[in-house]
Simulated scan of single mutants.
Amino acid sequence: MRILKYLFLLVLLALIGITVYVTTQKGDFEVAKSSIIKTQRSTVFDYVNDYKNWETFGSWMKKEENIKFNYLSKTMGSGAYCSWESDFGNGDIKTYFVKENDSIYQKANFNSTKSDIFWTFKDTVGGTKVTIHGKGKMDVLTKIKMFFRGGISGVLSDEMEKSLLKLDKTLEYEMKTYSIKVNGIVQRGSGFCIKQTISCRIKSVSKNIKIIIPRMVYFFKKNNLKMAGRPFVSYDVYDITKDFVTLSVCIPTEEQVFISSVSDVTTAEIIPFTCLKTTLVGDYSHTAEAWTKAKKYIADKGLSQNFAGKYIEVYVKTIDEVKQPSKWITEIYIPVFPKTEVAKPAVIPTAIVVTPSEPVPTPVENP
């Protein structure tokens, strides 16, 4: 028994010694990792810039059990914020600086361990060189945990490498997996909606839509309004020669809603019209191809576009329903004039058989 007691005391003293040693060490850390992502730089940047996408490639997040993410109305760009709760602790991250297609600076906090995170994106042979650079200071508990795992530098370096590898595989598959189907002529119904209208350059359309839709959804939740349909975008002006677009991001309502004049959103009526429906299943980067196929169908079928109507994109399934871009669903509606059916001339019989007591009817070519 004495031997067991001595062994226990020795183990206890060793643990105390290790703990004292670890806690007296500096908690500072700095780690960097780079990898080649086989996707164009703008696509990689946009994907990383939106926190809602991190669930698909962040290996450090996937290890957490029962993890729950909380997103505010802004999840991309400067000021974007995300927090999470899990069995292993809580954390949050916020974006403080963004240089488009070049770099991102963020601050993260997990169980009181704070860190600065820097992303850089550079064009290179075969795709985009992405570098993650993190530095910060550990709290006491994290220092002890990392000591028994071989040190925080090795742990973070391994997690960064796995995340970059998963980012590459995700983008490689998700960006290339898509389908486009021209559904045919349909009728868009009437109703009411709440909308926000902006003007921008063509290259900024996708980014602005991704920013405004979450804000509109948040507006509905904040004001206890019920959505009567999926968010959609109505294009009012799309001038390629002048590189100018005016669009309205809209969400249908069950009835007309009256909004204060000081608000940047307004209410509007949805006018019914005849249109050509086209469905894109996949990432928004294929939207231009979907529009091109739809317009080719119109030309091939001899249809005429109704330029007085509204050109619309309806976001049936988005990142809020499914994280994989290959499963997003977007419907495109191009206003067209109904194709007039040509009346066929009546077939005139070569002989009319009647009884002698009945008058002979006079054949009519167009009854």
Score class of each variant (00 low, 15 high):
Ser115Met: 07
Ser115Ala: 12
Asp116Lys: 00
Trp119Tyr: 11
Trp119Val: 02
Thr120Asn: 07
Thr120Leu: 02
Thr120Ala: 03
Thr120Val: 01
Thr120Arg: 03
Lys122Ala: 01
Lys122Phe: 01
Asp123Trp: 00
Val125Trp: 03
Val125Gln: 05
Gly127Phe: 10
Gly127Gln: 05
Lys129Ala: 05
Lys129Ile: 01
Val130Asp: 09
Thr131Lys: 04
His133Cys: 01
Gly134Gln: 11
Gly134Tyr: 05
Gly136Phe: 07
Lys137Phe: 05
Lys137Arg: 05
Met138Pro: 00
Met138Gly: 07
Asp139Ser: 06
Val140Gly: 03
Val140Cys: 06
Val140Asp: 15
Leu141Met: 08
Leu141Phe: 06
Thr142Phe: 04
Thr142Leu: 05
Thr142Ala: 08
Lys143Phe: 04
Lys143Gln: 11
Lys143Asp: 09
Met146Arg: 08
Phe147Pro: 00
Phe148Lys: 07
Arg149Leu: 07
Arg149Glu: 13
Gly150Glu: 08
Gly150Ala: 10
Gly151Gln: 07
Gly151Met: 14
Ile152Lys: 01
Ile152Gln: 08
Ile152Gly: 04
Ser153Ile: 04
Gly154Asn: 08
Gly154Trp: 13
Gly154Met: 11
Val155Ile: 13
Leu156Arg: 05
Leu156Glu: 13
Ser157Gly: 14
Asp158Lys: 13
Glu159Asn: 13
Met160Pro: 00
Glu161Asp: 15
Ser163Trp: 06
Lys166Asp: 15
Lys166Phe: 10
Leu167Val: 03
Lys169Gln: 13
Lys169Pro: 02
Lys169Ile: 00
Thr170Ala: 10
Thr170Ser: 14
Thr170Gln: 09
Thr170Phe: 13
Glu174Val: 00
Ser179Lys: 09
Ile180Trp: 10
Ile180Leu: 14
Asn183Ile: 09
Gly184Gln: 04
Gly184Asn: 10
Ile185Met: 11
Ile185Ser: 15
Val186Ile: 13
Gln187Glu: 12
Gln187Met: 09
Arg188Leu: 14
Arg188Pro: 00
Arg188Gln: 14
Gly189Arg: 05
Gly189Ala: 07
Ser190Asn: 12
Ser190Met: 06
Gly191Ala: 03
Phe192Ile: 01
Cys193Ser: 07
Lys195Ser: 15
Gln196Phe: 10
Thr197Trp: 15
Thr197Asn: 09
Thr197Ile: 05
Ile198Trp: 12
Ile198Phe: 14
Ser199Trp: 13
Ser199Cys: 10
Ser199Val: 03
Arg201Gln: 11
Ile202Trp: 01
Lys203Asp: 15
Ser204Met: 13
Val205Thr: 14
Val205Leu: 08
Ser206Gly: 14
